[in-house]
């Protein structure tokens, strides 16, 4: 398959993937027992009021029409009115998406750095190999919310180094207003040269980003280690060793350089893990992201808001997977076949 054809097929299947995910969501929300109106109003609601809400949500239409409406609304970004806030959901949700993007971005950077250190150490020293395996197991078994709370206790409450909750101190934002350009506070502040906001936002980011980064780094270090082992046992490394190239150069120039590409790609495919972990991390640190938005909306029974959050998650997952796949096919042509 030529590159152009692969990219076109991959991009063309992306909406199909979104539709599948939306269909699953639709089935869960509308077809499973548990009527959305009872979910919103509770089981003992006034029947007249139930009818009214059903009409407002379009639930009095036939199911197939509801399904079509749901898909069209999802693709055009019409998420309806939030029951809790009485404003369009789309007004509420985009700042939340930006906050989640900011958190996951910094977490990914921390995770990649941690994974690099662990994988390099374990490739260089035999003793660290056991440590690397232990590290992966620990990152998996430590509940992210528990780690977050413990870090809050140590670095927030006892040492008072970092704030334990929120994205920025509101006073700072009032004194030094930032214009949303990307919606990512640190980036916007940097663009405008707004140092007080930048530093304050960064301080708020440290604990949640480290928490989420640590949890994600386990899978990453495992992937990188496998890629390194594959590279280091290859013929070109044997040839390099035979030519007497120093071990250190072999490790970095031959091992790491060849392992880094598959690693970055597989790291990109961990988006589901990252987003899932972000929900718990955001909730632990009161981070105003999409995850806390979803949790709050679920607890407030804000049906349209829940639906909107799920739709956005579906789009994020599919877009990231598609982009990563295409980049992979650019680098490694074997994927295309």
């Amino acid at each position: 398959m030529s590159l152009a054809r692969y990219v076109i097929t991959r991009v063309a299947t992306a909406p199909l993937l979104v539709i599948i995910l939306l269909t699953i969501t639709f089935i869960i929300l509308r077809v499973l027992p548990g009527n959305p109106v009872t979910v919103i109003l509770g089981p003992k609601a006034n029947p007249a009021f139930v009818k009214e809400v059903e009409h407002e949500l379009g639930l009095d239409k036939p199911l197939w029409l509801q399904y079509i409406d749901f898909l069209i609304d999802a693709f055009t970004g019409h998420f309806g009115i939030s029951y809790r806030w009485r404003v369009p959901v789309s007004e509420l949700i985009w700042p939340r998406v930006a906050a989640t993007v900011e958190l996951t971005l910094y977490s990914s950077i921390i995770a990649i750095l941690l994974a690099l250190v662990v994988a390099l150490l374990s490739s260089k020293f035999k003793i660290f190999d056991k440590f690397a395996r232990l590290y992966t197991v620990a990152t998996y078994a430590i509940p992210v919310f528990w780690l977050g709370l413990i870090l809050q206790l140590i670095f927030g409450v006892y040492l008072k180094w970092f704030p334990t909750s929120g994205r920025i101190d509101p006073e700072i934002l009032i004194l030094h207003p930032v214009h949303p350009i990307t919606g990512l506070l640190t980036i916007d502040a940097l663009i405008e040269g707004n140092w007080p906001v930048f530093i304050n936002a960064l301080e708020h980011l440290v604990l949640p980003a480290v928490t989420l980064g640590f949890v994600i780094s386990g899978v990453m270090s495992r992937t990188l280690r496998q890629a390194m082992i594959e590279a280091l046992t290859s013929d070109y490394v044997r040839a390099a060793r035979a030519r007497g190239i120093p071990e250190k150069r072999i490790l970095i120039n031959y091992g790491l350089r060849n392992a880094i590409i598959p690693f970055i790609i597989i790291a990109g495919l961990q988006i589901a893990l990252l987003l899932g972990g972000a929900v718990l991390t955001e909730s632990t640190f009161g981070w105003p992201g999409l995850g806390t938005f979803l949790v709050e909306s679920i607890l407030a029974r804000d049906y349209n808001a829940v639906q909107a959050a799920i739709v956005i998650y579906a789009f994020i997952v599919v877009i990231v997977n598609t982009v990563v796949d295409i980049i992979y096919s650019l680098i490694d042509p074997r994927v295309r076949y």
Partner: peptide, 10 residues
Amino acid sequence: AFPGIILAMI
């Protein structure tokens, strides 16, 4: 491909 915990939540 979808985050499991989010699916479980809904």
